[in-house]
Design a protein around this nucleic acid. Structure first.
Lengths: 270, 270
DNA sequence: GAGTGGTCTAGACCACTGT
DNA sequence: CAGTGGTCTAGACCACTCC
């Protein structure tokens, strides 16, 4: 039997095809027909046409703004993150001279953007550890933690590249008062250098990767359609002493991010 | 000003809260009130109530089946995949005696299920390489490829644990005719043993990780709500000779999958 | 066939973005 | 203010599941 496609799906597919084909009026940046117009053209009731547009928005093809209109989105460039190389490189950076550290950032490596084209926004606070945090760090529930929220952006565009929530045990971070001062961000040389100022060397970083739909707030900040997917990256840094010294929860825009890991294998003896 | 929540959002939040609190009638497996009933109770029009239910479905809290009803979903167990350990272990398995290979599978490692509780479904075909495949393997467009589709399931439950599309150069795979025969699946000892029968040793595996919304077909096969997120894993196997010998595209249910990678760092000399 | 979700309509009114 | 998407209604009819 025919698979039975709803009317809104058919309309959405037709528009998607026009976009893919580059039909005039359906190129990136172009304004799509108003919902009311399509209703007047007999493409369906307002509910039906809206459903079609919503589907296209969820698929990342168009962006809808209330009061403004519906436009075809620019194809978004992929951001490829190779964490194995990145973490190794970042650790080495911490040992370089001040001059070098000041002119290099980790964010650049992902995006290909110049160091001075990236704005860092940081908000610091102190909070008691909830059950989850306490377990991660192996401390008692209620232990005071340093909570640092970051997001990075380019100057012309206020959409965030990622949303970062970073945690450390407050008493540990406080060994260097500069670490408690958000105006010191972006820190030249990154996390590894910060750690070195309080006598900590990071031995291993564990990444946990999950996905879910973006919340409305996340979608707005990251500039992605509401209801699209995000990648959740849980990054745990373990010191040479075997302690968890830092934990970051990173939200990445799913549609324009790819993570890469490489697993080398031991050769069979012949 | 008040953030202004739509009526459907309020209704969804209220039900979500009941589910979180374990209110009688809102426990896993319980049937939720019919849409028509809520309409009769004045919770809104059918469109409004349906929007609330749809939101809960997208969030993974309930499952809706046309003609049957809406139930609170069982919290789904997490599947944690540690590919570094997994790939290393799988390579070693290929060298073990037949007896051992026959009683171990890779799928078990992810799920904790017993070897004989997993059913493998395999479909093989031969297709010409499109541009993307040709580039990956470094062959000409149109080169004949072996395309193997797999999915695994437990006997009592027909939902797939993952959907796998695997590719090899057909002429290479054909060196061992058994590799072209889908009835030989599941192959005792996995991919590495298969490769060893045609004189190939895998030296390195590269994982690429992305995410997007599930298609309707994927959602149905994986038993996840329509419109929820999936993880896309692109797995490329490189031989000791430096050739790409196998490429798999794996679709994983986002809400019940976590990938883990660990990055060891060189110690600073002191 | 009874029951349940899914689609669709026609139209009213609200909320936000621009000028 | 005009213009555009977002929410909501009341009700009709369709498609699927289960008995």
């Amino acid at each position: 039997m025919a698979p039975k496609t709803p009317q809104w799906r058919g309309l959405a597919d037709q528009i998607a095809q026009d976009i893919a084909a580059g039909t005039p009026g359906y190129r990136p940046g172009d304004q799509l027909p108003q919902i009311r117009d399509l209703v007047a053209q007999g493409k369906g009731s307002k509910t039906t046409v809206l459903a079609a547009y919503k589907a296209l928005e969820a698929e990342g093809l168009v962006s809808m703004v209330r009061g403004h209109g519906t436009k075809v989105r620019q194809p978004t460039p992929h951001q490829i993150r190779r964490h194995q190389e990145r973490y190794v490189w970042e650790k080495k950076l911490a040992l370089r001279p001040d001059e070098v550290r000041r002119n290099n950032g980790v964010v650049d490596k992902d995006t290909g953007l110049k160091h001075d084209q990236i704005e860092t926004h940081a908000t610091f606070s102190a909070i008691p550890a909830d059950g989850g945090l306490a377990e991660r760090f192996g401390v008692d529930t209620g232990t005071l933690m340093l909570h640092r929220q970051y997001w990075h952006s380019t100057p012309e565009d206020s959409t965030a590249l990622s949303l970062i929530d970073s945690y450390m045990v407050h008493a540990v971070a406080a060994r260097n008062p500069d670490l408690l001062d958000s105006s010191k961000e972006p820190w030249p040389g990154g996390t590894h250098h910060q750690m070195s100022t309080i006598g900590i060397e990071i031995d291993r970083i564990d990444d946990g990767i999950r996905t879910r739909l973006a919340t409305q707030a996340e979608a707005r900040k990251l500039g992605i359609p509401a209801g699209s997917a995000v990648i959740l990256l849980d990054k745990t840094s373990v010191s040479t002493g075997g302690d968890v010294v830092e934990y970051s929860h990173v939200v990445l825009p799913g549609e324009r991010t790819e993570l890469r890991y490489s697993v080398p294998l031991e050769r069979w003896t012949r």
